[in-house]
């Protein structure tokens, strides 16, 4: 439970941080809230020689909202997401999901950037970002580039981010006014990662589904965007048969690990239950 030794850097700007990443190469890790990285270092599963602490970088600490366009800085904490009334007003699923991450102490420190950049399939925000069709802004020595959340995750702890890049911003367009949403997560206790979790963002046109975005957490080595399930629900009246078809389609793309939360078949089953319950709950909040 004692990390290996490392050097500590505290850049004041994105460009300084990116410069350090380039200089130190793959021996350098960004540390944001440290609540995923430091436990890994204590287990010596991660042994960076350089830690680049980004807490002094002002450019990545804001939430800005223009109409329905939302930009969240990578260093915005989970607690700040929860307390933002403006964000909650146009996209309530962010507060709902953030409140299901860990516990208040961790949320005071853990950042949204760390949560999505980490690449741990247990993190809750990546599936939310996929459902929202968010875009991640990555800064590198050649400037910035944008990657869709739906294209970002490659395998556990492997993402489209190059080692020399830093995540600076998360951008998305809030779902249409009147949308319903829900993040349904089953866990063993406070502070646990999901046995399975599902996010549903639902827009209704009268009694038919105009659009739906479903994504899953911790039931594969990446978050899962449930495209087929979405397709099966759009245009339906959310009748039991359509919901069942969507649930089965969502379950079909899962490939969870056996772990202390239960074996594979159980976690796939729970993913289905979470999807179904999230659809029904989202429907009650949609107008």
């Amino acid at each position: 439970m004692i990390p290996g030794s490392f050097d500590y850097h505290r850049p004041q700007s994105v460009s300084e941080a990116v410069g350090l990443l380039k200089d130190k190469g793959d021996e350098a890790f960004i540390v944001a809230g440290g609540h995923s990285l430091i436990p890994m270092m204590k287990l010596r599963m991660s042994t960076p020689e350089h830690l680049i602490d980004i807490q002094d970088i002002a450019e990545i600490k804001n939430i800005s909202i223009f109409g329905s366009d939302v930009t969240i800085g990578a260093f915005v904490t989970q607690a700040e997401i929860i307390s933002s009334e403006a964000l909650h007003g146009i996209c309530p699923v962010l507060r709902e999901a953030s409140l299901q991450i860990a516990d208040p102490q961790i949320r005071n420190v853990g950042t949204i950037g760390g949560n999505v950049a980490n690449g741990d399939p247990g993190n809750d925000m990546p599936a939310i970002m996929q459902a929202l069709d968010a875009t991640f802004v990555l800064a590198g020595e050649e400037g910035t580039r944008e990657v869709k959340a739906r294209d970002f995750y490659e395998a556990a702890y492997f993402t489209a981010r190059a080692e020399t890049e830093m995540l600076t911003l998360i951008k998305f367009t809030a779902p249409a006014a009147g949308h319903g949403s829900c993040y349904m997560k089953q866990k063993r206790k406070i502070g646990d990662y999901a046995t399975a979790a599902a996010v549903v963002i639902l827009t209704m046109n009268g009694t038919t589904v105009q659009n739906v975005e479903i994504a899953l957490t911790n039931v594969a080595d990446t978050p899962l965007y449930a495209e087929e399930a979405n397709r099966l629900l759009i245009g339906t009246s959310l009748d039991d048969a359509s919901i069942k078809a969507a649930v089965e389609a969502a379950k079909a793309i899962t490939d969870p690990a056996d772990d202390g939360r239960g074996p594979k078949d159980f976690r796939t089953h729970i993913a289905g239950v979470m999807v179904e319950r999230a659809i029904r709950q989202a429907a009650t909040t949609a107008s």
């Binding site: 206790k189 406070i190 502070g191 202390g260």
Partner: peptide, 16 residues
């Protein structure tokens, strides 16, 4: 050995 950390070894909190 499995369950050798508090991630898996169940210690309930006030919530549970």
């Amino acid at each position: 050995v499995k369950g050798g950390s508090l991630m898996d070894f169940y210690l309930p909190t006030a919530v549970e």
